[in-house]
Simulated assay, not measured.
Amino acid sequence: MIEISKVVVLGTGVLGSQIAFQTAWSGFSVTAYDINDTAIDQARLRLASLVKTYRKEVPGADAGQEAATLGRLSLSSDLATAVADADLVIEAVPEVIAIKRATYEKLAQLAPSKAVFATNSSTLLPSALKDFTGRPDRFLALHFANSIWKFNTAEVMGTSDTDPAVFDALIKFASDIGMVPIPIHKEKAGYVLNSLLVPLLNAAADLAAGGYAEPHDVDKVWRIATGAPMGPFQIYDIIGLNTPYNILLHGDAHAQQIAAWLKDSYIDKGKLGVASGEGFYSYPPAN
């Protein structure tokens, strides 16, 4: 039987920080790892912001639970120390296959044999990474949506090598941390969420990059015509522009043109989305 009590999250960006915080909030011991002390300092700021967000948006949040959560959550820039006794390692490093593969090659040497590895990749298939893990039978995808505390799906997708007991254990773990598990029965690029979402975001970017309509007007049409609470460019800002940029950069020639537009018009100007205070929209500083 697979028991999960000690969880490590690799990568403390927007979603990695959320995964770490939500997991600690749900009672697990969590270590959040990143590559250097500068990244760890940024992670502390993100976690402090999440305390304020949970206080405002999560029913029943109080000072006692916030303190307990932070007490269960530690930060480290030493990978060997971070994973030394891990039961589950959730990888949330940048969506670049070379970075992910290199991460797993290191992880395979350092993590105990009991540890299950899970990638939070939003677009890459786990089979593209399994041979670098050193334990393909204990490896699968566990994909979260952004704003994890309210958009609480967790897509679980294995490979042909994934042990069914590992798959079932991750379904249970997802439920234990307040997610709604979505079992995916065979590999599908984009999983469920991004199979639906990425074409929408790409179509929106194509309209704006091509000069057909302004981002705010694209959002306005989508919200009014469908009743959706947010338009695609509002979603871009929540995700953060770096992730879609990295995905588009590795696409076809047209996708690379859109990536160049994102970079020149927004990313190079420091407009990265909600996390930077400005993207397609401007955001007031958190109180």
Rank of each mutant, 00 (worst) to 15 (best):
L45F: 14
L45C: 07
L47F: 15
L47K: 08
L47A: 01
L47Q: 00
A48Q: 04
S49Q: 10
V51Q: 13
V51M: 06
K52P: 00
T53P: 00
T53Y: 01
T53H: 01
T53S: 05
T53R: 06
Y54D: 00
Y54F: 10
R55T: 08
K56Y: 01
K56F: 02
V58T: 02
V58M: 00
V58A: 01
G60T: 06
A61L: 04
D62A: 03
A63R: 01
A63D: 05
G64N: 09
G64W: 11
Q65R: 10
A67E: 12
A67R: 13
A68G: 06
T69K: 03
T69S: 02
T69M: 07
L70H: 10
G71E: 11
G71Q: 12
R72S: 11
L73I: 07
L75V: 05
S77T: 03
D78V: 14
L79D: 14
A80N: 13
T81E: 15
T81S: 06
A82T: 15
V83L: 02
A86L: 06
D87T: 12
D87V: 11
L88G: 10
V89G: 15
V89P: 03
I90S: 15
I90T: 06
I90Q: 09
A92M: 11
P94V: 04
P94C: 03
P94L: 09
E95H: 10
E95D: 12
E95G: 15
V96W: 10
V96C: 01
A98Q: 04
A98G: 13
I99Q: 02
I99V: 06
I99L: 05
I99G: 01
K100Q: 15
A102V: 10
T103S: 14
Y104N: 08
Y104E: 05
K106W: 14
L107C: 11
A108P: 05
Q109A: 12
L110I: 02
L110R: 08
A111E: 08
A111I: 11
A111K: 15
P112F: 08
P112L: 04
K114H: 05
K114F: 15
K114N: 15
K114R: 14
K114D: 08
A115I: 05
A115E: 06
V116A: 14
V116Q: 14
A118K: 09
T119G: 08
T119H: 13
T119M: 10
N120V: 04
N120E: 09
S122I: 03
T123H: 07
L124D: 05
L124P: 01
P126L: 07
S127W: 03
S127L: 05
S127I: 00
A128R: 10
L129K: 07
K130H: 07
K130E: 11
D131G: 11
D131V: 02
T133M: 13
T133P: 04
